[in-house]
């Protein structure tokens, strides 16, 4: 692949936090490139700097040193307002917490980024938001407030909000951190589908269960990349199907067992008679 295909190019990035008098080196020289259409999982122990890196890539924070190019633009040279527009136009961010607005319905949460779209690419905000919610399978929950939704549903609203501006990059910081295994696989299926449509996806996780759906896995330790491998990803869609099949089989088995029990009971009654 050629150099021009790199949508994200991070060069020698350092991030140092000052905690009173002690310095915390969250990132200590990270070099990292992501090509158009990749699905990357960033792994690492807690405190290894995953969120810090994601926030810089997402244009939420500036690095202490080093440079970061997004689509060839050096992001850390942009003004605050230009950076806000980059966040709005190019990136869809799914946060570690869901970060939805409370007392605000799913559809209102989803259409929020369109309010700040200075290019006015979408005439009908409601319609665009509804489509995004349908895309994540929440077409029947548009008027629910976050406190009326399950964790998985809230996460899907957050994903819909990230998708509504049709960004070319989706960044997700532990998108499955608060979800059970079934919902996790469903969310991963969604990401794989989006990726198949050409969206570049970077997600953070510390579970191998999640990382196995990514083609590329990058591992961080103490603010440095220690591993960067390409692998054959599992299909989340298959796993979902398997999961459903297994669940159905278990249910059938249970039903059969119940029916069997009933039959033996009947037998017993007959015997007595």
């Amino acid at each position: 692949m050629s150099e021009s295909n790199a949508v994200i190019r991070v060069e020698g990035i350092r991030k140092t936090y000052l905690m009173g008098k002690t310095e915390v080196h969250a990132l200590q020289g990270v070099d990292f490139t992501v090509e158009q259409g990749e699905l990357v999982a960033i792994m690492g122990a807690s405190g290894s700097g995953k969120s810090t890196l994601m926030n810089i890539i997402g244009g939420l924070d500036y690095p202490s040193s080093g440079s970061y190019f997004l689509d060839g633009i050096e992001v850390n040279k942009l003004s605050k307002n230009e950076l806000a527009d980059v966040r709005n136009q190019k990136i869809g961010f799914v946060f570690q917490g869901f970060n939805l607005l409370a007392r605000t319905s799913a559809i209102e949460n989803t259409e929020l980024p369109l309010l700040y779209d200075r290019k006015n690419r979408f005439k009908n905000h409601r319609e665009a938001a509804r489509k995004a919610l349908e895309r994540v399978g929440l077409g029947d929950r548009v008027d629910h407030h976050p406190n009326e939704l399950s964790g998985g549903q809230q996460q899907r609203v957050a994903i819909a909000r990230a998708l509504v501006t049709t960004p070319s990059i989706v960044l997700a910081d532990e998108p499955t951190g608060n979800l059970d295994s079934k919902t996790t696989v469903e969310v991963m299926q969604l990401f794989q589908e989006l990726n198949a449509e050409g969206v570049t996806i970077i997600l953070v996780t510390h579970e191998d269960e999640v990382a196995r759906y990514a083609r590329r896995v990058v591992e961080l330790r103490d603010g440095q990349i220690i591993k960067d491998v390409i692998q054959q990803p599992d299909s989340a869609a298959d796993d979902v199907r398997d999961l459903l099949a297994r669940r159905k089989a278990a249910q059938d088995l249970e039903a059969e067992a119940l029916a069997g029990d009933a039959a033996t009971t009947n037998q017993g009654t007959l015997d007595a008679g």
Binding site: L60, A84, N99
Partner: peptide, 15 residues
């Protein structure tokens, strides 16, 4: 937090 969310999805300081 609300302000942070709005800014994270592209609200400018002016907005």
């Amino acid at each position: 937090r609300e302000i942070g969310i709005r800014m994270a999805i592209g609200a400018r300081g002016g907005d």
